[in-house]
Design a protein around this nucleic acid. Structure first.
Lengths: 143, 143
DNA sequence: CTAAGTGCAAAAAATTTGCACCCGG
DNA sequence: CCGGGTGCAAATTTTTTGCACTTAG
């Protein structure tokens, strides 16, 4: 049916309104969304909160979605996929979030180092920046 | 009284058992702890959970403590300070956490870039790695 | 038809808040 | 003594779970 039916099918899962919806919603935004945000963006009838959580957890384990931690009370999620590799800057003042792509991730060296030192095989990383956006800096004076 | 009385005093705050305790506990561990972990490591009488939360939030705003997001249900905290700059590797299989220091953080370039592109002044970042530890890789076979 | 997915209600876990009492300076 | 800090209880918020009903394949 939807755009992701195939992908889900290939992974042995059914394509449902809840799953298609979450994937679509996450693809339409550049900043990660909380489960609540996601639910609210569904057209009526909105899926149950429990369904959103269950599907996020399933899609995460399939690698189609990834959780992003921005040091808030709740987790956020973003679409995950092949070439997708984004990072974020979060303003400590107003909470504004900007996303950007990094051309080459300078972290390959660190990952190799981790492999050597701990034997951990790194499959993923998360990198977030925090600071003040132009507006908040202006407000606070010459900080 | 305690080791941190001076620091707190200088920042216009009182030194109390709760605050000294949290700072001491976080300095004694290399992996970040959850509020619950922290409370449990207090000798009797343990402070109230609310007190732990209130103090973590205060110490965070003073920059003496920092929250670390490891994509779990709860936040964790670590001691923050001058030269302290640690990152972590988390095993997706068993949850084991290893901490390590990075000699030079390769991120200065990215931070400058963010400044140029968004006008954000980056004051901090968080970088976490996820993967499988040697034990979990062994268990799962030749992954 | 049948397993997998969903809604609904309730539980569990994490975090926050109000208020009265207590203690550090 | 006084204001900030704490305990205790209760409220909020986030996330999970059990169960009966529905639906995709």
């Amino acid at each position: 049916m939807g755009k992701h039916t195939e992908t889900l099918r290939r992974m042995g899962r059914t394509s449902t309104r809840g799953r298609e919806g979450i994937l679509r919603i996450l693809e339409e935004t550049s900043i990660p969304l909380s489960p609540k945000d996601i639910r609210e963006r569904f057209p009526e009838p909105k899926p149950d909160t429990a369904t959103v959580y269950r599907n996020l957890s399933l899609l995460s384990s399939l690698g189609l979605v990834r959780s992003v931690a921005l040091h808030e009370r709740c987790r956020r999620y973003e679409a995950a996929g092949e070439g997708i590799h984004r990072h974020r800057v979060v303003c400590r003042g107003c909470g504004r979030i900007e996303a950007f792509q990094v051309t080459t991730c300078h972290l390959a060296g660190i990952e190799a180092d981790i492999r050597r030192r701990f034997g951990f095989k790194v499959t993923d990383h998360s990198l977030e920046f925090f600071g003040s956006c132009p507006e908040c800096r202006k407000k606070e004076g010459a900080k």
